[in-house]
Amino acid sequence: MSVVTDKEVQRRVHMTLQVNGEEIEVSFAPYKTLLEVLREDLGLTGTKHGCELGECGACAVLIDGEPLLSCLTLAVECEGRAIETIEGLAQGTQLHPLQEAFADLGGAQCGYCTPGAVMTAKALLDKEPSPTSQQIKEAMSGNLCRCTGYQQIVESVEKAATCCRSAERGAA
């Protein structure tokens, strides 16, 4: 197969991305994945990377509400899609119940897997407000964590689910 050296191909692309509810214009080298653009071109370093090959889940973000891997998403394919990252999760200074729970219950130790894990858990709770622990383990099974042994992550998601539900009831 041929190697691309064409200068035209190496031109930066320019587009508008919708990140955490805001439209942001950005230009980037076209080989870049969403992970690289978020971290390097938009300065959103909350999204982490542990392999860049789809093998760890550290780079998970929500795209149109689904948890996807930003390291295997071409940035050029992200125009018009709603991207949510860890930076956009809190409402002002008010942490999301998942963030509260991860902070209180030891869901984050070194914190490196945390952004990907929290975003993945958010997608789960948005779909399934009362997950069983088996469902949580299954939903989080694409997020490697090297520190916690997962138990406190699962407990954090359970606690956040309870908080979200009672907040719902409170609001209703």
Partner: peptide
């Protein structure tokens, strides 16, 4: 107790070495 650095970790504010530029 919530550990002192927990908030930064759950908000993505904790800077690891590759986050620096």
């Amino acid at each position: 107790r919530r550990r002192v650095d927990a908030r930064a970790k759950v908000t993505g504010q904790t800077l690891f070495a590759d986050d620096l530029s």
